[in-house]
Amino acid sequence: MAEVLLEVRGLTAGYGAGPVLHGVDLDFQAGELLALIGANGAGKSTLLGVLSGLVPPTSGSILFAGRNLTGARPERVVRAGIAHVPQGRRLFATMTVRQNLVLGAYLRRDREVQSDIDRVVGYFPALGDKLQRVAGTLSGGEQQMVAIGRGLMGRPRLLMIDEPSLGLAPKVVETVIEVCQSINRDGVSVLLVEQDVVVALEAADRGYVLENGRIALSGSARELQDDPAVRKAYLGV
C-alpha cells in the first residue's frame, strides 16, 4: 500500500450564496495520476481553490503528507508542496516566458532555478526558443505549457492542473496530457481536472466523478470508463 499523500474529509465550501461543495471525501496515494471529472458547475474548480487555499472551507479537513492544511493560506500550501495550475492559465501576460517560470519558483531560496527551467524545456521542447518571448503573444497551447511549467518550478509533490484542454486543438491536448503523464512518471503526483472525460480517463490511474458538489463515483480509470452511468452522462454512448 502506497503512502497516503492527500486525505480530504467532509469538505464543504462556497461563496456566500450557499455551499458549492457538500462534504467531499478524497484519497490520493503518492505517485498517482488522479482524474477529477464532472460537468460544468459541479464544483471542480472550487475544490481545487479550497485545496490551494484560495477559497476558505466552511467545514471538513485537508491532510497533506501528514500536515493539516485545512484553511491554510496559499503560501503555506505552496510551501507544503502543492502547485495549482489555474483554469485559463493565468499567465503574467506582459512578462516573458522566462520571467513567468522564474516567478513560479517564487518561494524557493536555492540557486537551482536555471536547471529547473531546463527541466521544464525538457518536458516542453516547444518552449526552448521562446523563453524571451512575451507570454501573452504565445499560442493557447504554448501558454498552457508555460502555465504547467510555472507550476513545476515550485518543485511540488502534487501538481493540480485545472482544465488544461480548455480551448486547445485535439493534437495539442494530446501533447499536454502526455507531458502530464511523463511528469507523473518522474515522481510528481498529478491531479488532473477535466471536462474532457475521454482524455482524462485515458491518462489517469484512478478517477473521481464530482456531481453537484458531491463525489458521485470513484474507481480505477478503467472501471469508470466502463461504468454505464459515466458512459451515458459524459461519453454520450
Binding site: S52, L54, R73, P74, E75, V77, V78, R79, A83, H84, P86, R90, L91, F92, A93, T94, M95, L103, G104, Y106, L107, R150, G154
Partner: peptide, 23 residues
Amino acid sequence: SRFGYGLIAIRENEEAASVLGVN
C-alpha cells in the same frame, strides 16, 4: 527584491501571484 517581484506579480495577475505563494 523578492518583495518587488511579488508586487509586480500582483499587478500582472493577482490570482496567479497568490497561487505561486505570494502573500
